[in-house]
Amino acid sequence: MHLHKYEKIWLTFGIGSLVLFLAVLGVAAFAFGQQPPSHMASVDSQNLEDTVFAEPGLDQINEDTYRARIVALTYGYSPDTIEIPAGSTVIFEVTSQDVVHSFTIPGTNVNMMITPGHVNMTEHTFTEPGEYLVICNEYCGTGHHYMQMKIEVTP
């Protein structure tokens, strides 16, 4: 099979950049821990009262770190508001009690799928005070566009 000289240059450049690009993604992921949310814990979505999600809410872990256990449901979240001081890091552990949802804070990198039976996890540091909107960006039924909660970040 004949490869034209220009085509060889074109492919070498293309494949070379591809390898470099994938290496950057891989190093960021496996050396610096910038991984997509891929938590492996599972729960019984129909019996959340027997799990750590029986009483969802905010726990303070240390001075500026919190854990927020949140249950996504049609059409909202439990709890529907959490309040933290600016500068706090929040570890979000979220599951669903019914169908597939998402837990998404527009304007941040917090954006993960919430599938029933699984707990998904991510964290975010809120440096700026304000009222953050949390929305579901995965279709979950006729009231999907009403599904939201708030994160109050106090100064």
């Binding site: 992921a29 496996f30 799928m113 599938t115």
Partner: peptide, 21 residues
């Protein structure tokens, strides 16, 4: 962005995805 699939397999499939370049 989904729970229940490990980062490793997601990355493997990401690499395979990019071969279509």
């Amino acid at each position: 962005m989904e729970a229940g699939i490990t980062e490793f397999w997601k990355y493997i499939q990401t690499v395979l995805t990019f071969v279509v370049v």
